[in-house]
Amino acid sequence: SSRTRFTDYQLRVLQDFFDANAYPKDDEFEQLSNLLNLPTRVIVVWFQNARQKARK
């Protein structure tokens, strides 16, 4: 499967949200999905990866 290429804007929004809340609710994932024009699944995985990185 091909990797999603995030724009700088998408990454900034995701990172800002993550800094405020590492565990979004379903409706928040949906809002981010609509805002960033990305599939919810891609955003869910991004947050999983970000939490892994933050733990190191």
Rank of each mutant, 00 (worst) to 15 (best):
S1C: 14
S2C: 09
S2P: 09
S2M: 15
S2L: 13
R3C: 15
R3W: 14
T4Q: 10
T4K: 02
T4I: 13
T4R: 04
F6K: 04
F6Q: 02
F6G: 02
T7D: 06
D8W: 04
D8E: 09
Y9V: 08
Y9C: 07
Y9K: 14
Q10N: 01
Q10K: 00
Q10P: 00
L11F: 05
L11C: 02
L11G: 08
L11K: 08
R12G: 06
V13H: 08
V13A: 12
V13Y: 12
L14Y: 00
L14N: 00
L14P: 01
Q15A: 08
Q15V: 05
Q15E: 13
D16A: 05
F17A: 14
F18A: 06
F18Y: 13
D19V: 09
D19M: 14
D19E: 14
A20E: 09
A20Q: 09
A20P: 03
N21G: 05
N21E: 06
N21L: 00
N21I: 04
A22P: 14
A22E: 14
A22D: 15
A22V: 09
Y23G: 05
P24G: 00
P24N: 00
K25M: 04
K25Q: 06
K25D: 04
K25E: 05
D26F: 05
D27P: 04
D27S: 10
E28F: 03
F29H: 04
F29R: 05
F29C: 05
F29T: 06
F29A: 05
F29D: 00
E30D: 07
Q31D: 07
Q31K: 13
Q31R: 12
S33E: 03
S33G: 10
S33F: 00
S33K: 09
S33I: 00
S33R: 11
N34R: 09
N34A: 14
N34F: 02
L35F: 04
L35T: 14
L35I: 14
L35Y: 09
L36P: 00
L36T: 13
L36F: 02
N37C: 12
N37R: 11
L38F: 03
L38R: 03
L38C: 04
L38D: 00
P39A: 05
T40C: 12
R41N: 15
R41I: 13
R41H: 14
V42E: 15
V42K: 11
V42Q: 11
V42P: 13
I43R: 01
V45Q: 13
V45I: 11
V45R: 12
V45F: 08
W46A: 01
W46M: 01
W46Q: 00
F47I: 04
Q48P: 00
Q48L: 05
A50T: 10
Q52F: 07
Q52W: 07
Q52I: 07
Q52H: 10
K53W: 10
K53I: 12
K53N: 14
R55E: 15
K56D: 11
